[in-house]
Design a protein around this nucleic acid. Structure first.
Lengths: 154, 154
DNA sequence: CCTGAAACAGCCTCCGC
DNA sequence: GCGGAGGCTGTTTCAGG
C-alpha cells in the first residue's frame, strides 16, 4: 500500500495515542474528520496498522520484573526453530520474542512476578525444550522507551 | 490500585484489542457495558493502562529491518547512565531500550530502512556517546510475539 | 480523493437499586 | 459497587465538487 504524507502523519499520531477522535486527528494532520476516518479504516484493513492495543503496566498487575533472555540452540535446523517458535507462542510469561542472527539465536522478553516465578519458568521452559544449548539472563532495571513506535518519515 | 477478577479480564481483553465496544467487553467479562466503561476509565486514570496505541507495521512504513543491539558502557557511573538515557530518548531509530544487568548494560531495539541507515545510525550514535565501550548487533529475522502483552492472572 | 450534512452507533451521566 | 434510560459525542454513509 502506498502511503502519502497524510497517512504518515496519521500513523505517527495514532501509534502514540489511538483514542484521539477523528476530529482531533483531522486538526493534527490538516484534514477533515471524515477523511481521516476513511484513511484510518484503510490503514487498518491493509494491515499497515497491525493492531490496536492498551499498554498495561506490568507493575500494576503484579508482574514488575522484566528479563531479557538470550538463548542459543543446539542446532539451527529449521524444524528445531519452528518447534521452538511454537513453544514461545504457548508460553504466557513471554511478552516478545525475536529470532536473531549473531551472538544468540533467540532473544526473549519475559515478564514475571518475582525470581521464584522466573526460576519456575526457566526450569519448565528449558526442560520442555531440550534443544536449548545455553542461555543468559539480563534483568531489566529500567525501560527507557516503552512501546513499539516506529520512526515515520513525514 | 486493587484489581479484582473483572478488572483483570478487562485488561486481558483490551491489551489485545482496545477497540472493542463497551458492549462487547461486557459480554466478554460478564458485566454490563456501563460497568466496563466505568472500570476502564478508572484503570486509565490510575495508570494501570499506561497508553492506548496503534501498532504500526514497520515493513509497511518502509522500515523493515529490526536490530537488537547490546551495549556495554565504559563505566557504570550514574551520570553516564543518565546521559545515555537522554540520548536514547532523542534518537528516533530506537523503538525500545532496556537498562539491564548481566552481559550488557543496555539493550536497544532499532528499526531501520536498510543497512545503510543502520550504519549511519551506529556511526552517529556511537560518535555522540563516547562512553560506549562496545556493542554487538543481532539482526532480527523474525518476531514471534509482537506486542507488550503482560500475563494477567484471572 | 476531498468536504459537509444527516443518520446512526456507541459512550457517558444520572439515578434507582 | 451494579444496571438501565436517555442525552450527547463521535463515527459512518451519502451527496456533491
Amino acid at each position: 500500500m502506498e502511503l502519502d504524507h497524510f497517512d504518515r502523519k496519521i500513523l505517527d499520531a495514532v501509534q502514540r495515542n489511538n483514542r484521539l477522535t477523528t476530529e482531533e486527528l483531522g486538526e493534527l494532520v490538516g484534514l477533515s474528520a471524515t477523511a481521516c476516518q476513511r484513511r484510518l479504516k484503510k490503514l487498518r484493513d491493509a494491515g499497515v496498522i497491525e493492531a490496536d492495543v492498551a499498554i498495561v503496566s506490568p507493575e500494576a498487575v503484579g508482574r514488575p520484573m522484566l528479563m531479557l533472555v538470550s538463548i542459543s540452540l543446539e542446532r539451527d535446523r529449521s524444524n528445531i526453530i519452528d518447534r521452538f517458535k511454537q513453544a514461545i507462542r504457548k508460553t504466557p510469561e513471554i511478552m516478545s520474542a525475536f529470532y536473531v542472527t549473531g551472538e544468540a539465536d533467540f532473544v526473549l522478553l519475559i515478564c514475571v512476578r518475582d525470581m521464584v516465578e522466573y526460576e519456575a519458568f526457566t526450569r519448565r521452559f528449558f526442560y520442555e525444550n531440550p534443544d536449548i544449548k545455553g542461555f543468559s539472563t539480563m534483568v531489566v532495571m529500567d525501560r527507557t522507551k516503552v512501546s513499539f513506535a516506529v520512526r515515520i518519515d513525514k
